[in-house]
């Protein structure tokens, strides 16, 4: 099967709607297809990977740990738009520590998250074949 570049564009906060959770379910299935997968977090999407999520007060399952498993599926191209963080009073320190292990580099642990400017993100989006938007 051909390899395509798949981009998952996440622009909504988690929990208020089901999009973040069900987008993650697609990402995990896609991992089995050996395609080139990237995730973009733009606008309220940045809240999906905020650290310290605690859903005790809303009776919903906290699925944020699943993002940490993405590295195990070789999904390690996670782009976060800097301007979206800025607009929300957030910095990279507010995000979960998402990492992957590079087998070509003695399994060194490397960060999956790349904070990019809006202009850089536009280049990343333009460089894809398929865009799934959630």
């Amino acid at each position: 099967m051909a390899t395509k570049k798949f981009m998952y564009v996440n622009r909504k906060a988690p929990y208020g709607t089901v999009y973040a959770l069900e987008a993650l379910e697609v990402v995990l299935i896609a991992a089995a297809f050996e395609q080139d997968i990237s995730l973009a977090f733009i606008d309220d999407g940045v809240y999906q990977i905020a650290k310290g999520q605690n859903t005790d007060g809303i009776g919903m399952k906290n699925f944020s740990a699943t993002y940490k498993a993405l590295g195990d599926y070789d999904i390690n191209k996670i782009f976060v738009e800097k301007e979206s963080l800025d607009e929300r009073g957030m910095t990279a320190d507010d995000l979960m520590d998402l990492v992957w292990e590079d087998e070509d580099d003695d399994w060194a642990e490397k960060p999956s998250i790349k904070i990019v400017s809006r202009a850089e993100m536009a280049d990343v989006l333009a460089d894809q074949d398929v865009h799934y938007s959630f």
Binding site: M1, K4, F6, V26, I29, A30, F33, V130
Partner: peptide, 11 residues
């Protein structure tokens, strides 16, 4: 059917 059908469709 499963989500794989979506990925396959896009491929």
């Amino acid at each position: 059917s499963g989500l794989g059908q979506l990925i396959e469709g896009s491929i």
